[in-house]
């Protein structure tokens, strides 16, 4: 917990008060050049980066979960093998290649990044949602049917809550990939935290590279940790009533 707060503090410091860290980055900067990235505010880059990831992941979650629900209903069953094939093939596509291939179609800027993040983000969420929805305990489903719940009630009150932790794990994987791919998005002129890294690589200014790298790395680690906490919380809540029943 202390470590978490320390990392959060470091992150906030790096983003909000970058000039307080001159001493840290100065040794890495080449002579007579600035040690702190100042061509754009790190705060605005961070917010932009997070907004891109959030928008793409939110859209991907909605579409992927809807698709998973569709192929696990009788009407969508014929599409199930196909959807498996697509997820398998799609996940072997490198995220960078997806980003690069989106540029010819959509031009430079935030748009291809958003689309690449969205498309690539669909796969882990869909895969997990499909697994979760198709491996529900048959006895629970039978009980729900026996209670007289109709299809929508079963979906909303039984299936989705039971599948939630696994779906959330899929969203976590997808968000982590999106954070990384959004960083690379700055090579196609999206305004993200990759900008200082790329600028540093181009001007041989290692200080910029480290700054961008540290900030993105800290964001990733903290977001990952937050997801794991929520997943554990969900799993705990699910275990409790079961334990009570057994006792």
């Amino acid at each position: 917990m202390i470590l978490r707060l320390a990392l959060l503090g470091l992150l906030l410091g790096l983003v909000l008060r970058p000039h307080a860290f001159v001493w840290m980055f100065e040794p890495f900067a080449p002579d007579r050049s600035t040690a702190i990235y100042d061509r754009a505010s790190l705060l605005s880059l961070s917010l932009n980066h997070l907004a891109l990831v959030a928008a793409a992941s939110l859209a991907a979650t909605i579409v992927a979960v809807a698709l998973a629900i569709f192929v696990t209903r009788p009407a969508g069953a014929p599409f199930r093998p196909l959807s498996r094939t697509i997820t398998n093939i799609g996940q072997s596509f490198p995220p960078v290649a997806v980003l690069a291939l989106a540029v010819p179609a959509l031009g430079f800027g935030a748009r291809p990044t958003l689309v690449a993040l969205f498309l690539y983000g669909l796969l882990p969420i869909f895969e997990n949602a499909l697994t979760a929805l198709s491996t529900l305990p048959p006895r629970t489903m039978e009980a729900a049917r026996g209670m007289g719940l109709n299809r929508w009630q079963r979906l909303a009150q039984v299936e989705l809550p039971l599948a939630a932790p696994v779906i959330l794990a899929g969203i976590r994987v997808s968000v982590m990939i999106a954070l990384g791919t959004a960083t690379i998005g700055s090579t196609v002129a999206a305004r993200t935290l990759g900008e200082p890294i790329i600028a540093g690589l181009l001007t041989n200014n290692t200080a910029f590279v480290l700054q961008g790298g540290l900030i993105v790395g800290l964001f990733a680690v903290l977001i990952y940790d937050a997801f794991v906490q929520i997943e554990n919380r969900l799993l705990d809540r699910r275990r409790k009533p079961v334990a009570r029943k057994v006792a």
Partner: peptide
């Protein structure tokens, strides 16, 4: 798994000063 969460571009970037 901590290493795995670090975005790739950041990881490649951080390697530069270390290996340098």
């Amino acid at each position: 798994s901590f290493l795995q969460t670090i975005p790739s571009l950041a990881m490649f970037g951080i390697m530069i000063p270390i290996l340098g």
